[in-house]
Write a protein that binds this DNA or RNA. Structure first.
Lengths: 222, 222
DNA sequence: TGTTTACTTCTACAGTTGTAGAGAATAAAC
DNA sequence: GTTTATTCTCTACAACTGTAGAAGTAAACA
């Protein structure tokens, strides 16, 4: 009963160690870099083949390794999956940070929404992973905590931008800031689902139009 | 290696057969009723313990049967799961049919939304199942087809109600009907996620407030 | 070239899964 | 009570899972 019939083509390892100790020094990998590679492989598997295909063997093969080789970097599958979800959140937040840098008020809010919405193939893959995440977070404490902390941060950011808009006289008087933020948030979460599953009925152009309509409701009439 | 250590307490079977053939007639179950019981057991397991707990053995135990007994009713696990998802869609649509009966325009639209939104514990359980469904539908053709057919129907209904509202002069002139329906739909999908995972930040009262704000944007100023 | 050390592969294993089917149990009609 | 068709339980099994660790491999320096 042989286990690995598929011998994955090993990738070229480019990591170079920086440590130099006593005697002989063997091959050294950058652990942080390797962990990132493994997380990205996991991300690709989940996005393309779904959570049920994300087995340790599949992930290892996708990363170009054999079965047992993930353990030194992630002691357990749960740790790897959790790191993958955290990675996707980070990725989105980094894009948001770049897109909103130097912006304020409704401009910042719009830039934020346009980064969160699945407007291209890459973010569509992110959405696929996030949907898997939600399914697990619905029944796991750690997952829901990660989610809720992120969502709370997003709500705070949105509220801040709307406060700025109100200060500047750009916000419609009737807008309830926290509630409007929640509406926008729920709209964006739902968009992930529509964009992934009902792709034909939810093009990027559709989403942009829907976002514009939402933002128009916030803007003060001139 | 014994398999079933847990002997599930058998439920009282109430089905009565109606057929009467040649000679001796044994116990007869209403296959349709039984299938429904099994689907409901599956629904409960997914809602309470998640998709990963929905094994054939767990489902059978929840329904009050032993392992093998599901096969005569659902030949495969995929068939049972699919029937469960279809059941949840049906359930929602039946509630919608009741709530919108005799209503038109924005009243019907509001009634519809209030049936779809997870405003009570029961619908929160439905939302949990739907989230599992989405995760599978993201990578399966059959699932996405079921979803997209339902969503298309919902979009048509919403458009019809908005058309009626426009006819009656209740709809704001600036409203783009298909796009507004999509916004509302995405908002409702996202609400399922928020309500399940970020429950504390998404109470029924919150959702009602958000829905009211959305509908206010559709209503013509008087 | 040889040694040391970090890394990777490979084999193994216990547990769980969906599926299958033989047989026991069941209840209705005679 | 006997018969009989149906329903259900139980055991079995092959495939797959996450995890573990022994054995092998290769890099860097002496």
């Amino acid at each position: 009963m042989f286990e690995s019939t598929v011998t994955a083509a090993r990738l070229v390892r480019r990591g170079r160690g920086t440590r130099a100790e006593g005697a002989g020094m063997p091959k050294v990998v950058d652990h942080q870099q390797r962990k990132r590679e493994l997380v990205e492989a996991t991300w690709r598997i989940i996005a393309r083949r779904g959570l049920s295909a994300a087995t340790m063997r599949q992930i290892a093969a996708e990363a170009g390794f054999a079965n047992g080789s993930l353990k030194p970097y992630f002691p357990t599958k749960a740790a790897l999956i959790e790191a993958t979800y955290a990675f996707v959140f980070d990725r989105t937040n980094q894009r948001v940070a770049v897109a909103t840098r130097g912006r304020e008020g409704l401009m910042a809010l719009e830039a934020f929404c346009r980064e969160v919405l699945p407007l291209d193939a890459d973010r569509l893959d992110e959405a696929r992973v996030v949907i898997s995440f939600w399914q697990e977070a619905a029944h796991e404490l750690r997952g829901s905590e990660l989610n809720n902390a992120s969502m709370a941060q997003w709500r705070r950011s949105m509220a801040t931008w709307m406060d700025q808009a109100r200060e500047a006289g750009d916000l419609d008087a009737g807008v309830d800031i926290p509630s409007s933020g929640d509406v926008l948030l729920n709209f964006m979460l739902g968009s992930q689902i529509s964009a992934v599953i009902d792709r034909a009925a939810t093009t990027p152009a559709d989403l942009e139009r829907q976002l514009a309509a939402q933002l128009a409701h916030l803007r003060a009439a001139r």
